[in-house]
Amino acid sequence: MRVIVRTVSELCITVGSVIVLFVVYVLFWTGVKADGVMDDQIELLQEQWARSSTPPAGAGSSTANTASPPKPAPYAKGKPFAIMHIPRLGFTWNKPVLEGTATGTLKKGLGHYAETARLGQKGNFAVAGHRRTYGDPFKDFPRLRRGDAVVLTDGTTWFTYRIDKGPYKTVPSDIEVIDPVPRTSGYTRPGRYLTLTTCEPEWGHSHRLIVWAHLDSTQPVEAGKPEALRR
């Protein structure tokens, strides 16, 4: 009898310790890991851009007269291709955007829905991000308001999107929100749109929060940071 009581109590202590450790892992350790990984991704991008920014200047001259610019290479799955800045979420808030929305990809940054438009192109550039855990990128998502800037760069161009419709709560099956012309957003004509999605409530998965934005302006990186990122 005593052995049973002792074994059960020791098991309880063990399970309790594991649960506490798990909470520490989810709340704290995923954030530490994700911050490191996201910084690595941003560094990787900046290295790539630094390397590729020099050759095209000379090589481009011979093909400058072709009718249309060559179609850009598709984004590589699971690889970063842009950096997003949202001043409302913090002046230094910047996260890498990776291609795809697989679980492993979203651990490294924000995920671009593979079927949606490219950055700055006609259609809907849709991006998903964690609200909680893995660095909490979209923790302050509900604070986004109409008129807020969402600024992205792909190394050659700055894209400034302006939010038109603030956090809109929907259900996870509502895939229309990332349509080229998302109907519930109030847009009626095709355009260059951006959609951000995250989970709602903060720690749950019963709903999703959405914001929509339209492309407001673009400028080459040589022209410096866009208005929205200057203090």
């Binding site: 892992y25 929305t101 679980t103 829905y113 855990t133 990332i178 998965h205």
Partner: peptide, 27 residues
């Protein structure tokens, strides 16, 4: 034990929790 938990067990268990569902099409 803590190392094995953090390195192998928790990364496996964490996606089973709802914090990962941030997309609208459940890819």
């Amino acid at each position: 034990v803590v190392y094995v938990l953090f390195q192998y067990v928790f990364p496996w268990a964490e996606p089973l929790l709802p914090f990962n569902d941030v997309t609208v099409d459940n890819q």
